[in-house]
Simulated scan of single mutants.
Amino acid sequence: MTQQVQAGIDPGAFALPGFDLDRFVRETLAEDLGVAGDITSAAVIPAEARFTGVMDSRDAIIVAGLPIAEAFFRALDPDVEIECLVTDGDRVAAGTDLMRLSGKARALLTAERSALNTVQHLSGIATMTRGYVERIAGTGATLLDTRKTIPGLRVLEKYATRMGGARNHRMGLWDAAMIKDNHVAVAGSIGEAVRRAVSAHIENIIVEVDRIDQIEPALAAGATHLLLDNMSVALLREAVALVNGRVPTEASGGVRLDTIRAIAETGVTFVSVGRLTQSAPAADIGLDFQAE
């Protein structure tokens, strides 16, 4: 029989705009439980058995996702005792205990993988992000994430980049216009594309340019932010000098940890990095039984 998932989860009143924690937990557990439920725990673990364990990190990480992990455990055992030993955004060394919990063994072992998957994924993103943030420290540039996220996980992944110290770029297609090469191709020119966005009364108009000669037409038409796409360091310096502070500038495209410092030192306002959410490796985090 499938275990009942409790409604109304409130792990420390964790809330993110646009994210339904109850629904995420419910649907994630349903995916794992299927129709038959956790057949291993039902067969192997006595119904009255208790489990006391510790979630710990085998890697040095920036922590992200503990309140969500807590929600998974509470969904299957509302009476579980949980002590979070660190806070999201903390930097911890390898071997650090993150959470202690004690409760119904079947419930906690059923929730274990969903909880760990979430913390591993989000902590991996936060950890990679912090590495990029530290690499550009002192340059004046701000690190941005992108919309290159796993479908359905954008709010969580962008939360993780914030835990790592980045600033969120657009959350979706709705909160700013971003005019890219295909929009320009259909509209006929950068100037025409920007003018149409201005006529639609869009406040924030980001325009992607990959050549110096595209900058003035974009600005003249009303661009409020320029995305300097796949430009060399030398070209970025030239573009920043030409813009001369009239709008924020953003370097984007193929940015890596070994190149971001030189890019940031060109004077751009922002550097955006898709790999933060696209390619971050999961952190090595486990849950180990402890005898009482």
Score class of each variant (00 low, 15 high):
A251W: 03
S114I: 02
S199R: 07
V119A: 03
T129Y: 00
T259W: 04
H169M: 07
V240H: 01
A218D: 02
R167T: 12
Q6K: 14
D145Y: 07
A36C: 11
D59V: 02
I205K: 00
G222E: 03
L228T: 11
G172D: 14
A71P: 04
E81M: 15
A291E: 15
A47L: 13
Q6E: 14
D77R: 04
H183W: 09
A282E: 06
V25C: 05
F72M: 14
A47T: 10
I9K: 01
I39M: 12
K148F: 13
A137F: 00
E265M: 10
R196M: 08
A251M: 06
S57R: 01
L236N: 04
A107T: 10
I39G: 05
S41D: 11
H121T: 06
R23D: 15
V54L: 10
D59G: 13
T149R: 00
S189Y: 04
T259P: 05
F14N: 11
A94K: 12
V233D: 15
V86Q: 08
V86P: 04
L235R: 08
D38L: 05
S57T: 13
Y132L: 05
D79A: 15
L276M: 15
V240E: 02
A15S: 15
A223G: 07
A111V: 04
G12E: 10
G34N: 11
R162E: 09
E157Q: 15
V44N: 09
V63W: 01
Y132G: 01
E250Y: 02
P11K: 10
R23L: 14
A187Y: 07
F73N: 05
A262Y: 04
D38G: 06
D79P: 01
I285R: 02
V80K: 11
E83G: 14
A291M: 13
D229R: 04
D59S: 15
G124L: 02
L122Y: 07
G95A: 13
A177R: 01
V186E: 07
R237P: 02
A220N: 14
P46G: 03
G37Q: 08
L257N: 09
T139V: 09
G267I: 15
D22C: 09
P78H: 12
L144P: 01
H121V: 02
L29A: 01
Q278S: 14
S57N: 09
V184Q: 02
A177S: 06
E292Y: 04
H225A: 06
M1F: 07
D90R: 05
A7R: 15
Q120E: 13
I285E: 00
L122A: 03
F72S: 03
G89K: 02
G152L: 00
E70P: 00
L101A: 03
N244S: 15
Q278F: 13
P248W: 07
M171T: 10
E81S: 12
A220W: 03
M99D: 03
C84M: 15
T146I: 06
E208D: 11
